[in-house]
Amino acid sequence: MISLNINQKDYQVDADPDMPLLWAIRDLAGLTGTKFGCGVAQCGACVVHLNGEAVRSCVTKVSRAAGQKIVTIEGLSQNNDHRLQIAWNEANVPQCGYCHSGQIMSAAVLLRENPNPTDEDIDMAMSGNICRCGTYLRIRKAIHLAAEMQRKESSSR
């Protein structure tokens, strides 16, 4: 048994130590918001936060994550109200929607580390996430929107 802390909840999973974290999250913990896209860290559909970093869970062994702090899309906010989630809705970003768990988890790290990202910063942060529907321009727009919300919140504090 391996102990995983996902979204501040403890899970005991019966997993091979070499099982990728992705499959432990999806098939054993039953959290299906994190997606399988390529299996080889090419597309970013499986991004989760491991101690705050946007790791590709399809190549991260569950043993690396044991006892660490894991956050999935389901745990990004309580009420779907993380500013990125609000911005995604505002800019009508998703089409099929499959890649957006990973897109949003990647964007969350960007916003934490750079509250005022330029287009170039966004490209730097998001070039590891593929969207086959081609929503990239709206992803960029939504990140700017979320950054703006973040700035307004912090200036009104």
Partner: peptide
């Protein structure tokens, strides 16, 4: 950088 740190994909 950001969501693209080496160790996000490159494991130990």
């Amino acid at each position: 950088m950001y969501a693209m740190k080496c160790s996000n994909c490159h494991q130990p």
